[in-house]
Structure formats: structure tokens, C-alpha cells
Amino acid sequence: MIFTEKENLLANEAHLTKAMLVSGLNSLRRANIVLKGEYYQAFFSLSIGFERMLKIIYISAYRADHNGNFPTGNELKKLSHNLVKLWDYIGIKKLEGIHKDILEFLDVFAGYSRYYNLDIIMNKTGKNKEHGDVLEHWAMIQNNILKASGKERCMSRKQQELAKYIDNVSMTLMHNLKGEELVSSAQVANEEINMDIIQGYSVQYVFEIIKILYYKINEIEKVDYRMPVLTEFFDYFNDYWKPYQIRNKRNWLNIR
């Protein structure tokens, strides 16, 4: 037998974690004000994927320090579901700037705000409501991502004229991520003109966080090589990718 039962279960956990991460990246790349559901799908998948990958790292490091043995239930109880606390507990280098903002956002989403919509609808009180609207919070991060990119675009005169023409023959009623009404084609176009830039860079930032986790696993396995080889599950998230390739990739579900 190549794997013990626990090693086989750890391999299954790695399969699951990878699937959640690539699903999250794919949804985040697709998301926009028309496909708002993709934002929620991305946040669910990434928050779960991050937590599981952090716990995989903990198990891997524990085995390296305990002659291949797995942590007990009591040991695992020490671990929090809080992504920020998990990150610190495992001892990975501190995140800064937008990377830090994204991890903290996903932590709040997983712990509190994932049910924000239903909580507000049902007038529920408590911390879930206190953390505010998910999409509005993400819109603030997106704004920082766009500014950091240095590639913000404005509508051209031709695009403005086309928007006016469309408004003469149709009507628009949408809401942006901040919940603001968009009642003209020009407003919608202004929201969308930078969306591809924002989503590309958003995926890049998330990818870079996952890459840090991959290299942490790689660091452990270089010292203590055991089955399953966890880097094989996540070796897609490495320095081979150039930033523009990450931003331009639209289908993340074809990762094998």
C-alpha cells in the first residue's frame, strides 16, 4: 500500500482545496455588475480554499516535526476558522497592502457577512449586520486595485455619444456594487469600462496569495519529504506565471 488511510484522506483534502481555489479564481475573473452572483461564488470558494490550504500547511509542518505523525483532534482544536489568525499561527510572512485587505475581507466574509443579504431582509441583528454589505466592501478594494494598476480609463467622446443615443431609445435600471442606481447607459459604461482591468488584477492579487502558501508547502517538503506530495496538487501556483499572463487568463477551470 502506497498511502496510509490518513495520507489518502490528506490527498483528497488537497484535491478539494485546489478545486475550491481554481473555482474562486474563475468566478472572480467572470464577475461584473451583471453577474454579481459570481462575486459571491468567488468569495465562498476562496475563503474555504484558503482555510483548508492553511490547515494543510499546518498538518504538513506538524508531520515534519513529529516523524510523520498526524496531529490529534486536540491539536486541531487549537486552529481557528479565522483566516488572519490561521495565517499568523502558521508563521507565514505578513501580508501588506491589497494582499492584506483581500485576506481580511475573505475572513470577514467567511465569519460574518456571507449571510448579510438574508440578515438584512429578515431584520436580524448582530455582528453579521454590523460588518456591512459584501459587495460594497469589495467595491472599495476594487477601487484601490484600479488605482494601484495605474491603468484607469475614461469613456471616449464616441462612447459618450453612443451612450446618449442608446438612452434616447431605451431605459436602464441597474445597481453597481455600492448599491447606487445606474439609470443611464453612460453610467453603466463608466462602471464597465475598467472592469476587465479590475478583474484581471484582482485575480493576480489572489493568485499571489495562493503562491505564498504553495511555497510554504514547498519549503516544508524540501526538508521533510512525505506522501502525499502536496506540492504536486498546487504546483500551478508558482513563479512560472508572469503577471500579465495571470491577468489575461479567463478560464481557470482547465487547470489539471
Results as ranks from 00 to 15, higher is better:
residue 173 L to I: 12
residue 194 N to C: 11
residue 118 L to C: 01
residue 43 F to C: 06
residue 151 K to V: 01
residue 94 K to D: 11
residue 28 L to M: 10
residue 104 E to W: 01
residue 162 L to P: 00
residue 256 R to V: 15
residue 252 W to C: 02
residue 199 Q to K: 10
residue 98 I to A: 07
residue 19 A to L: 12
residue 238 N to V: 14
residue 75 E to D: 15
residue 31 A to W: 01
residue 107 D to W: 05
residue 53 M to T: 03
residue 249 K to C: 04
residue 49 G to F: 02
residue 140 M to Q: 13
residue 172 T to C: 07
residue 209 I to R: 07
residue 41 Q to C: 07
residue 95 L to H: 05
residue 125 T to N: 11
residue 185 S to F: 02
residue 66 H to P: 01
residue 230 L to E: 04
residue 1 M to E: 13
residue 129 K to T: 13
residue 104 E to V: 09
residue 75 E to P: 00
residue 75 E to N: 15
residue 186 A to S: 11
residue 19 A to R: 15
residue 198 I to C: 06
residue 69 N to L: 04
residue 190 N to V: 00
residue 33 I to V: 14
residue 117 N to H: 15
residue 1 M to F: 12
residue 127 K to Y: 07
residue 240 Y to P: 02
residue 140 M to P: 00
residue 98 I to G: 09
residue 111 G to F: 09
residue 218 N to R: 12
residue 41 Q to G: 08
residue 47 S to H: 11
residue 94 K to C: 05
residue 229 V to R: 14
residue 6 K to Q: 10
residue 253 L to V: 08
residue 207 F to Q: 06
residue 143 N to P: 00
residue 118 L to R: 12
residue 33 I to N: 01
residue 2 I to S: 13
residue 148 A to C: 09
residue 143 N to I: 01
residue 8 N to A: 14
residue 61 A to K: 15
residue 121 I to G: 01
residue 81 H to A: 08
residue 219 E to I: 06
residue 128 N to I: 12
residue 232 E to S: 12
residue 38 E to W: 15
residue 68 G to M: 00
residue 251 N to F: 10
residue 256 R to W: 04
residue 101 D to R: 15
residue 52 R to V: 07
residue 206 V to N: 05
residue 31 A to N: 05
residue 144 N to V: 05
residue 84 V to R: 08
residue 152 E to R: 11
residue 118 L to I: 15
residue 124 K to S: 03
residue 129 K to E: 04
residue 90 I to K: 13
residue 149 S to D: 09
residue 35 L to K: 15
residue 223 V to C: 08
residue 21 L to G: 03
residue 116 Y to I: 01
residue 149 S to M: 08
residue 76 L to F: 04
residue 137 H to R: 13
residue 70 F to G: 06
residue 226 R to S: 02
residue 238 N to H: 14
residue 111 G to C: 05
residue 122 M to Q: 12
residue 104 E to H: 07
residue 193 I to C: 05
residue 114 R to K: 14
residue 243 P to M: 03
residue 154 C to E: 13
residue 142 Q to F: 04
residue 109 F to I: 09
residue 38 E to Q: 15
residue 95 L to M: 05
residue 240 Y to R: 14
residue 255 I to T: 10
residue 171 M to Y: 09
residue 61 A to P: 00
residue 153 R to W: 02
residue 29 R to C: 07
residue 64 A to C: 02
residue 223 V to P: 00
residue 179 G to V: 08
residue 20 M to N: 12
residue 197 I to W: 02
residue 123 N to E: 11
residue 205 Y to V: 03
residue 41 Q to P: 00
residue 200 G to L: 11
residue 119 D to A: 15
residue 84 V to H: 07
residue 96 E to I: 13
residue 52 R to C: 08
residue 42 A to D: 09
residue 224 D to M: 02
residue 49 G to R: 05
residue 251 N to D: 14
residue 201 Y to K: 13
residue 234 F to G: 11
residue 94 K to Y: 07
residue 150 G to Q: 07
residue 68 G to F: 01
residue 37 G to I: 08
residue 228 P to F: 10
residue 7 E to T: 05
residue 246 I to W: 08
residue 110 A to K: 06
residue 57 I to C: 07
residue 77 K to N: 13
residue 46 L to P: 10
